[in-house]
Write a protein that binds this DNA or RNA. Structure first.
Lengths: 253, 253
DNA sequence: CGTGTCATTGATGGCTCTCAACTCGAGTGG
DNA sequence: CCACTCGAGTTGAGAGCCATCAATGACACG
């Protein structure tokens, strides 16, 4: 509520080198002086409350954002369709890569809980990239990694059962939390069942039912949005196994 | 069959400025002398026969390719799953964006028919991009456009019926052919029903059935792989309409 | 003219959506 | 402190879409 009184001095000048996310963020691998330049273009960390929008679909695109803490979701509304969740963003991940080169934001991005983001005005980033080959490389890599991520998602959505989708989703979250130094076995689902369903192409009731079944089977324990993976191997089996008639997955050619 | 005897002199030195795809290709918007540099790094157009692989999943990544003629498909095999078609490439489109910054190719890319591709060795492209800001911008734009394309695909795959997927697919192809100067109403499907099914997350039998039904309804006419769109508005309606209980698509927020 | 691939068509079963009722907890106001 | 409201989540029953299995037809290739 109160407008952060004495906290300002510390965050007034963002310091990437001091950021705990440094190892996972965009400027990874930049030289010291390059990092200084990077600091110069970053805007003050921005606080978002739960439900607050970071960008709105169709609004002019100006900046990329790096999640510093909290989590967000991207939703895309297409004509004649209901809006769908297309992405969840965790700390260290970059929001807005899909709008580069466009005038408008491709989707709306909303905070799922209290969150902080660092703003990277894209025009300044481009100027900086002009003289920092490593930064260009990082950008390319981030984008192509996201392309691969989306393609895995497409594979998941086409022709996998609800069990497989949900198991893969949980394992993916587990891995992302793990690589951020958090527990891979116990974490908080900041998104609703409805969000998960929209993201995975399932009805929210199905999400609820499958989670309950996973719990019966002893693979996980869920209590509201608190999730514990009790048997990760069982979960991996659930993610991999085919519809029942697991006919040898043809990995031909 | 015969190894192109007298044709070589013309294609020996590729000339982007003369290429009929110039308006749709990567170097669009480059100045004349920049275009010259671009010509320098392009390798001889490469011919592919139907079924021949341009890249194989897991092989070292070295180059991007631009499709000059013909069409290709990308397939991605994931552990414990059957391989899936993730992309169809038409003339002017770039193959390999999802492997940038990686050591390995992300998926296999195979020619669906006789095809020509221009090779762009990535290291040389990077060097060139160093001094051509427009080229960097083009690359970013291509990648973010593909990100948006993938996200539309994800929306299509999650929660749309077979009819909607197939109608959207055909409309998408129509538009891509159209923007290449070909007829939007009559074109050749170089991919098999099985490929389409894999791409759309449907069984090949379903693809066949739905196409037959679209024909009954008078929206299209199919004869093998020759496709004619006879009523594009009907097709658009099929792509848009919801499962039957079209409850108002909530475009809230 | 066999052979294989691709495509079509039919019958059946199952996964998941939809509709609906209910529980639970938080926030609000009396 | 309690009743009320609202949203999120759970659970149940039925229907529908689509995958699967299977057989047949079309076509190219050698």
């Amino acid at each position: 509520m109160k407008p952060r009184p004495a906290q300002r001095p510390r965050s007034a000048v963002p310091r990437c080198e001091r950021c705990t996310l440094h190892a996972r963020c965009l400027p990874l691998g930049l030289e010291f002086d390059a990092l200084q330049s990077f600091d110069d273009i970053i805007r003050l960390p921005q606080a978002l409350k739960r439900g607050q929008a970071l960008m709105r679909q169709g609004a002019p695109f100006t900046s990329l954002y790096v999640v510093r803490s909290g989590s967000l979701k991207q939703t895309v509304a297409q004509p004649e369709q209901r809006a769908q969740v297309t992405h969840f963003y965790l700390p260290g991940e970059i929001v807005g890569l899909d709008a580069i080169g466009e005038e408008e934001c491709h989707g709306s991005v909303v905070a799922l809980e209290s969150a902080f983001v660092c703003e990277l005005p894209f025009t300044r980033l481009e100027v900086l990239a002009e003289r920092l080959p490593e930064l260009r490389g990082r950008l390319y890599r981030c984008m192509s990694r996201e392309l691969r991520r989306d393609q895995r998602m497409m594979c998941l959505l086409s022709g996998r059962t609800a069990d497989q989708r949900l198991a893969s989703f949980l394992l993916g979250l587990s891995e992302r939390f793990s690589s951020r130094g958090l527990s891979p076995y116990r974490f908080f689902l900041s998104m609703s069942r409805s969000d998960i369903g929209s993201y995975l192409g399932l009805a929210l009731e199905t999400v609820s039912r499958v989670l309950a079944r996973f719990q019966e089977q002893g693979a996980i324990a869920v209590a509201g949005r608190e999730l514990t993976i009790s048997d990760i191997e069982a979960l991996e089996a659930l993610a991999a196994e085919s519809t029942g008639a697991t006919r040898a997955a043809r990995l031909f050619d």
